[in-house]
Computed example of a mutant assay.
Amino acid sequence: MFAVVTDNGGNIVRATIDTFGETKYLSCLAHSVNLVMQSVLNAIEAVKNLIAKIKKIVMFFGQSNTAVYKLREAQAKDEYQLCLIQDCPTRWNSTFDMIQRFLVLLYAVTCTLLSLDGSPQMIFPAEVNLLKELVILLKPAKEVTLSISGEKYATGNKVLMLIDWFRTEVKKLQPISDVGKVVKTSLMSEIKKRLGCYETIRFQSLIGVAALFDPRFKRSYFPNDLYDAQVLNLVSGHIHDLKQPNSQKRKTENLQADCSNSTSISNNI
């Protein structure tokens, strides 16, 4: 067993560390990014209210077969007839998908709402511009979420690279509106607050070593010289242990103990 990846729930983290040891615990980057984005989207009132308006419109289409039919009619000349996407409160990227699809169907949605009685109010042009800016501001986080969410391949080696890329991409953004500027500032603050732990000694024995052995990254994304030296020392220590028969025996015994603990836990569950 190399690592146990969990969300950031305090009870889950404590149970994992108590059972497997702190060196085998790793916080899920996708979950941490989700916390970053949820915090940003909920903390800024203008953004929160605008997303609520979009949700209300999307829910109207979800509850009205007539509205869905009219929406398809409005897309009759398009190659594909698309539907609006309803977001999920616990998955921030579904909010991004909802906004992006809403902008794609903006003309069709406007025509449909104007043709139906009792339909919710359409958003104003200034709000459309803000939505377009939000898509640009939030897209780096979407890319990170997609990249780190592999189910059939390891992604720990990419953690440092993705955090560095995420931070760099957000820094490069130049929002025009005042709200957009607040979103950017909030993003930078949350990245430092919630993702900075991955660049410390806490997880270097896992993601630092994984990055070092990936020929694409190696030491390129290590945050500082101290981190670099500590990872190299860890690897040197592991190599030295492998050359010592007694040390290797202890490693095997520890691995067997881990397997025994895991089996015991499974049986208890």
Rank of each mutant, 00 (worst) to 15 (best):
V179T: 15
E127H: 03
Y153M: 09
D164H: 14
D97S: 11
K158P: 05
T168W: 14
S94I: 14
N157M: 05
L162I: 13
S149T: 00
V144A: 11
L162Q: 09
W165H: 08
L82S: 07
P175V: 02
P125W: 09
K142F: 14
T90V: 02
E151K: 12
V179R: 05
Y153A: 06
L130C: 09
E127C: 01
C83V: 06
A141I: 04
T155Y: 09
L160D: 00
G118N: 11
S149V: 00
S147M: 09
P140H: 06
G156T: 15
E151V: 14
C88V: 15
K158D: 10
R167T: 15
T168Y: 14
F96A: 13
T110H: 07
T110G: 01
F96T: 09
Y153R: 10
T95A: 01
I148E: 08
I136D: 14
E127D: 06
P140S: 12
V159S: 01
K152N: 11
E151A: 13
K142A: 13
L82G: 01
A108S: 11
I99W: 01
V170S: 09
D97L: 14
M161Y: 11
S94Q: 13
T112L: 01
I163C: 04
F96V: 12
L162M: 13
N129S: 14
K172H: 10
F102I: 04
C88T: 13
L131V: 05
L131Y: 04
Q86T: 12
G156Q: 15
K139I: 10
R101E: 10
T90M: 00
T155H: 06
L106R: 04
E169Q: 15
S149L: 02
S149Q: 04
S149W: 04
W92E: 10
A126C: 08
L113N: 07
L116F: 08
T112E: 00
V109P: 00
V170R: 07
C111S: 12
E133M: 03
A141D: 06
S177I: 04
E127R: 03
F124V: 14
T95D: 05
E127L: 02
E143G: 11
Q86E: 12
L116T: 06
L160V: 01
S94H: 13
P120Q: 01
F96D: 12
K172Q: 11
I123D: 11
N129L: 10
S147K: 06
L138S: 07
I148F: 10
D97G: 07
E151Y: 11
G150P: 07
R101D: 10
K142I: 12
Q86R: 12
C111K: 12
G156A: 15
D87P: 00
G118K: 08
T145M: 02
